[in-house]
Design a protein around this nucleic acid. Structure first.
Lengths: 131, 131
DNA sequence: CTGACTGCAAACGTTTTGCACGGTA
DNA sequence: TACCGTGCAAAACGTTTGCAGTCAG
């Protein structure tokens, strides 16, 4: 709990109950889209506004707390930035499963690219055998 | 030219001048977003509607002619599906550069995943040294 | 105390939809 | 000819913005 507060503070942002709740919820879910984040936080803060979520999401991304996972035809998901991994994304049920780098998935770059900020690996498939 | 027509026909879609122009433009550009596609095609078809583009894009994706490249904070880009490669995406200028699989980039999967439909590897960075 | 954050409502841009017409097979 | 595709306009949707009030530092 203390660490969440520092996580926000250390990135140069003011600590508000709403921001703590956002980070807590994102952390608890691993990855989450705006709507689910909104629903989750509304339990704790019935008056919270979607606009606040969007504004903070933008802040979090700019300050490097979270990262976006862009998924075609689905809501963008967000996750804390401290763990690097790939994603398996089911096109049918929209499930997102994390795949560990170096362990489950390895990426080899044979060219030199300067200034890499982020690597996104999404594997799209179908995990719903019985639909 | 004949091959473009067959490319559309073979995927079970009717061949219209608009669709030919779309595939031709996407092919010529490698990857392109809706707006640029619209601008390009408007030269040839001044009366073409954005709605037509969107409807056909959806058809093309469903039938497997093209693939979406979802980029956070930028317009989704589209590319023909027959060539597999990763992307380097500049966060500043929005440039998208193709990186060949097996050659420039290698991906190793150490787990077995059934039913993989598509793999998306996007490397975000900064190619604009002097901005 | 001051600037940053919040919540509301309105605005905005993108994507989708309904419908009448036109073109492909 | 039958059905699919097109273009227009309107609707729907997700996201952003402006503003007045509030809170963290």
């Amino acid at each position: 709990m203390k660490s969440l507060i520092n996580f926000i503070k250390d990135h140069g942002l003011k600590v508000t109950p709403q921001r703590v709740a956002m980070i807590k919820t994102i952390k608890a879910n691993g990855h989450i889209n705006i709507d689910d984040l909104y629903k989750n936080i509304k339990d704790e803060f019935p008056a919270i506004s979607l606009a606040t979520l969007y504004k903070n999401i933008i802040q979090f991304i700019e300050k490097g707390l979270i990262r976006e996972i862009a998924i075609p035809n689905h809501k963008t998901q967000y996750e804390l930035k401290y763990s690097e991994h790939a994603h398996f994304i089911c096109k049918k049920c929209n499930l997102v499963r994390d795949l560990k780098f170096g362990d489950e998935v390895e990426l080899k770059l044979n060219i030199s690219i300067e200034n890499i900020e982020n690597i996104s690996i999404n594997i799209y498939g179908d995990c719903c055998k019985n639909i």
